[in-house]
Structure formats: structure tokens, C-alpha cells
Nucleic acid binder design. Structure first.
Lengths: 134, 134
DNA sequence: CTGTATCCTCTTGGATACTG
DNA sequence: CAGTATCCAAGAGGATACAG
């Protein structure tokens, strides 16, 4: 064999931790939800305004998922029009630094040159439903 | 209205930067690929060993995607069994801190209590193909 | 060794309509 | 307001076979 194999350069803990932690942030919206809860509780409708392109169904699904994983808590409010508040748990707050790092990189990339090369899986072509008569 | 709306708490730049940057890391394997290239070039087969559960097709697709986005470079080697090396571009290297933060959080979560609650979309139940007669 | 092609499944996400 | 239900589309990913 012409090349000698350079193998097992990483002891594997980082890989698993990365995959597992990324699994917590799966999907297009989970990080955004956590991000918008970083300063305190928000209500369902508020999150829909914070994250304009997300549909009610997906936001609902993400919130439930993140709740199941113990990253956030749901609190029913006994108001006249019934409302709900979502807030991060301590576990959920642990993810803030990671998301923050991603945000920083994202900002830096646009700042430097960074085309962020036409990456709009389709989150640009939608825009119709989410912006409710705004 | 009983509650006053607390809206536009975020000026929106972070949200877009988050989404855009997360789009660069889409999928289960893109972050792992970048992570395993952080110390230098790796060949296709080496990456398959580094990231044991990834299939050839997906690894190929991710590599091409990341190449298209300018995050890594592919270099054909004129060896007797033809081989290829992948290495991060400067742009790709920009993402290291973000991934690093995710890894750190992942490690901390397992360290503290963190069940990382049975989150194995299916990356645990596979294991058959990727481990080639290991 | 380095991929690609096909086929198939599961997940994510959107649109719309509907309930409490 | 806060969701849920249904239907549908696109993407991610795996298995297998095959090509350069």
C-alpha cells in the first residue's frame, strides 16, 4: 500500500459527543427556539413572531420534542384567552454557548466576505403562511 | 388584551445568522466531517473509519456538498490505487469554533448527569454496514 | 481505493383546516 | 390564542450493487 494509514487520530469521545449534542439541535428550528428563549419565557404566538418562517405545526412539534428532552418547560397560564409559556430548563440553558458560537460564526461569515453560498434549502421561498398579514 | 405583547426582542440579525450557519452544518454528518478534518487532510477511506456509522453514499454526498459550499477542498492524488484527500478551506476552518462549542457542551452534558435522553434517531440501530468486518 | 446509482425508509417541514 | 390533524413534498440517510 502506497500510503500508510493514519488512523484513529481521534479517541472517539469528541465524535460521539458531537453527534449526540447535534441530535439535540436537530432540525431547522430547534436552535432558533432555544435561542429565542435565552432571555426568558416566551409564549407560543410570540415565538411565531420571533421565528417568522416557522409553521404552527412544526413549532408545536419542536416545542414538544424539546420539552420531552428536558430542554424546556411548558407552563399553562390561566388567562382569559388561554396561553402557554415556554422557558428553558437548566439543561436547555447549557446549549446556549454552543448556539452562541454558531451565531458568532454566522455573523462573522457574513461580515468577512461570506456569500453563505445560496444556502436557502427553501426557507426563503416560503414566506407566505408565516407572515400573517403583516 | 390581558397580556402586553413583548415583541421584537431580538433585532433579527442573530436569527438569520443562526439559521444560515446551521444550514452549513445541515445533516448528521457534516459537522463530523469538518471535525475530523480539523487537524489536516484526510482521505475518503480514512474518514469512513473516523466516522464509523456513515455510509459511503452519504459521506460522498456530504463531502461534495461541503466542497460546493467552499468549506473544504478535494485533491486527487496520482497514486497507484487512486486516492483523494479532503482538507478544510479557510472558510471551513471558521466553523471549527462553533463545532468545538457543541462538542464541549456534549461532553459537559454527559459529564454532569445528562442522559442525553435516548436520542438515537437511528444512528445506534445501524452498525452493520459501516463496520466493515472490523 | 474512491466513489456513483438505485431503491427505499424515516424525518422534517409546509399548507390547510379544524378544535378547545 | 394555542394548538392538533391530515396530507403532501423534499431531504437525509441506509443497503446494495456497480464503476473508474
Amino acid at each position: 500500500m502506497a500510503l500508510k494509514m493514519r488512523k484513529s487520530r481521534v479517541a472517539r469521545p469528541p465524535m460521539c459527543a458531537l453527534t449526540q449534542c447535534m441530535a439535540l439541535l436537530r432540525g431547522a428550528w430547534a436552535p432558533n427556539v432555544i435561542w429565542h428563549l435565552r432571555d426568558g419565557a416566551r409564549r407560543f404566538g410570540e415565538l411565531r413572531v420571533d421565528i417568522p418562517l416557522v409553521s404552527a405545526k412544526v413549532l408545536s412539534a419542536r416545542l414538544r420534542e424539546l420539552e420531552d428532552r428536558g430542554l424546556l418547560e411548558r407552563r399553562l397560564l390561566a388567562t382569559s384567552p388561554p396561553s402557554a409559556e415556554y422557558s428553558l430548563t437548566d439543561l436547555g440553558r447549557e446549549l446556549i454557548p454552543a448556539i452562541d458560537a454558531v451565531v458568532k460564526v454566522g455573523l462573522k461569515l457574513r461580515g468577512m466576505d461570506a456569500e453563505l453560498p445560496t444556502l436557502r434549502p427553501r426557507w426563503n421561498a416560503v414566506h407566505r403562511t408565516a407572515r400573517r398579514a403583516g
